[in-house]
Amino acid sequence: MIRVLIADDEPLIRAGIRAILTSADDIEVVAEAANGHEAVEQARRHRVDVALLDIQMPVMDGLTALAELGRTAPDVRVLILTTFGERENVLRALRHGGAGFLLKDSAPGELMGAVRAAAAGNAYLSPAATRHVADSLAAGPAEDRREEARARVARLGEREREVLALLGEGLSNADAGRRLHMSEATVKTYVSRILAKLDCENRVQAALLARDAGLG
């Protein structure tokens, strides 16, 4: 059973997410919070597997709560709840170890799929939303970040760079496998190797690095 925390300062949002998640046989909502401070305390107290954090919360916002959980409860996988109006915050969250992000108007199936992916140790990367966020930022990354990304990508072999480029496009392992004529298991092996070589915590960070390096 996947143990989930929902943190949002709007009771109706929490109630709606709870109703969706509790309809699944393998997901249990064990805690709720109205601010980031409560979220951190509840996540530790209830030993949750996945925390859904709204970015905009009083007392302690979602990004601060994400950082605090990273320090004090690193096993908790964090999914950020957001809207398209918070693009820069979303990007910051992903760069700092968030397991992915969900739009608040996501379909129920997408919400449950994201929770399951995060619980399994995978990052949830919505292709459409990720491309929208990345493409809506400044025309390109800051030059120092671009150069750093290119230097890190240079550690990879040619096939690894091809896989990384597809991560940058937001493709799943299955879709990347079809594009490269590989099995999904082979792509998964490449992804694990890429994360290790790039010092990335998850595929979301790797995808953003790919875009910074000009691969995505």
Results as ranks from 00 to 15, higher is better:
Met1His: 07
Ile2Gly: 11
Ile2Ser: 12
Arg3His: 07
Arg3Ser: 14
Ile6Arg: 11
Ile6His: 06
Asp9Glu: 10
Pro11Gly: 11
Ile20Asn: 06
Ile20Phe: 01
Ser23Tyr: 05
Ser23Gln: 15
Asp26Glu: 12
Ile27Tyr: 09
Ile27Lys: 13
Glu28Gln: 15
Glu32Pro: 02
Glu32Gln: 11
Gly36Asp: 12
Gly36Met: 09
His37Met: 06
His37Gln: 14
Glu38Met: 10
Ala39Tyr: 10
Glu41Gly: 01
Arg44Ser: 11
Arg45Met: 05
His46Gln: 12
Leu53Gln: 14
Ile55Thr: 08
Ile55Arg: 13
Gln56Asp: 09
Met57Lys: 06
Met60His: 08
Leu66Lys: 11
Ala73Val: 03
Ala73Ser: 14
Asp75Asn: 13
Val76Ala: 09
Val76Arg: 04
Val78Tyr: 09
Leu79Ser: 11
Ile80Tyr: 12
Thr82Val: 03
Arg87Trp: 00
Glu88Leu: 07
Ala93Val: 03
Gly98Ser: 15
Ala99Arg: 13
Leu102Arg: 11
Leu103Cys: 04
Asp105Trp: 01
Ala107Val: 00
Pro108Asp: 14
Gly109Arg: 15
Arg116Gln: 08
Ala117Ile: 00
Ala118His: 08
Ala119Thr: 01
Ala119Phe: 00
Asn122Asp: 13
Tyr124Val: 01
Tyr124Gln: 08
Ser126Ile: 00
Ser126His: 13
His132Val: 03
Asp135Pro: 00
Ser136Gly: 15
Leu137Cys: 05
Ala138Arg: 15
Ala139Asn: 14
Ala139Arg: 15
Pro141Gly: 06
Asp144Glu: 14
Glu147Ser: 13
Ala149Pro: 02
Arg150Trp: 02
Ala151Glu: 15
Arg152Met: 10
Val153Trp: 05
Val153Lys: 11
Arg155Gly: 04
Arg155Cys: 02
Arg159His: 13
Glu162Ser: 10
Val163Ala: 09
Val163Asp: 10
Ala165Trp: 00
Leu167Ser: 07
Leu167Val: 04
Leu167Glu: 09
Glu169Phe: 01
Asn173Met: 07
Ala174Thr: 12
Arg178Asn: 12
Arg179Trp: 00
Ser183Cys: 00
Thr189Ala: 11
Tyr190Ile: 02
Tyr190Met: 05
Val191Asn: 02
Val191Arg: 14
Leu198Ile: 00
Asp199Pro: 06
Gln205Trp: 01
Ala206Asp: 03
Ala207Ser: 08
Arg211Met: 07
Gly216Pro: 01
